[in-house]
């Protein structure tokens, strides 16, 4: 049973990526062009127009956006997955968790692509590989668990509250600015800054920049707390999905 679900999830992920590639002229190239255009917009606004006095702004922005976009696409694609697959859920007996999982895996594949490119760019900028790289897989794993937990939660709720669709994009947008993706949180005054750093994504992006740009080990205390939050959210979401499973087929068409 478990093995079957793993086979189904992996093949459906392959199918999803393959179909996505076939849907456009440039196919896989979009996996790079889209984030690059995104990056160009923020660069234009914050570096050129607002003249952000951030040192190393380009690598700063690149690392932040790469880690952020991964989280964001997991939550928005994964979050829609059950709602979009309701017709299929009415037809076959399949654990609903498969559907957001497929989206999360597909977005993770695309992220790994971006990550490889990011490393090459950083190296050519002179940010050499260093010992702190050893902590990178852990930081990425925690982000994956956190993103999956968030995606499962949204995907579980969305079929019952379709109106969430109009809120999610806005919430993600605000969360992005609160996570120090496009500008540093260093300038935020202290009591507020402590609160900002409770945000798991802010901690993860900070850790990622520390490793990739400064050869700095993560703040283990903060990372530990984020790990606990991520695991708790994942467990809660899995439980919620299991409980709600019988109810999805009873929603109106």
């Amino acid at each position: 049973m478990r093995l079957h679900l793993i086979e189904l999830t992996l093949f459906a992920t392959y199918a999803e990526l393959r179909a996505e590639r076939a849907r456009s002229y440039l196919g896989v190239l979009w996996w790079i062009i889209e984030p690059a255009m995104n990056m160009a917009v923020y660069y234009l606004v914050f570096a050129v127009i607002l003249k952000t006095s951030q040192a190393d702004y380009v690598p700063f922005l690149l690392v932040g956006l790469a880690l952020w976009q991964w989280f964001k696409s997991c939550v928005s694609h994964g979050g829609y997955a059950i709602w979009q697959q309701l017709p299929l859920i009415r037809q076959v007996k399949v654990p609903v968790q498969v559907f957001p999982s497929v989206q999360i895996l597909a977005d993770t594949m695309k992220f790994l692509f971006i990550l490889a490119l990011l490393l090459v760019i950083l190296w050519s900028y002179g940010y050499a590989p260093n010992r702190a790289y050893l902590a990178l897989p852990l930081v990425l794993l925690v982000e994956l668990v956190f993103a999956a937990g968030a995606a499962y939660l949204v995907s579980a709720a969305l079929p019952f509250l379709p109106d969430l669709r109009f809120v999610i994009e806005q919430v993600l947008q605000v969360l992005m600015f609160l996570s120090g993706v496009v500008f540093a949180l260093d300038n935020v005054p202290q009591p507020l800054r402590g609160i900002f750093m409770l945000n798991p994504i802010a901690v993860l992006i900070d850790a990622g920049r520390g490793i990739l740009m400064h050869g700095r080990w993560p703040n283990w205390g903060a990372l530990g707390i984020v790990t606990l939050i991520a695991l708790a959210m994942y467990a809660l979401a899995t439980l919620l999905l299991a409980r709600l499973t019988p109810r999805y087929v009873k929603l109106p068409t």
Partner: peptide, 9 residues
Amino acid sequence: LSGLLLGLR
């Protein structure tokens, strides 16, 4: 894909 969804290995 369809076979997997219908429960085949």
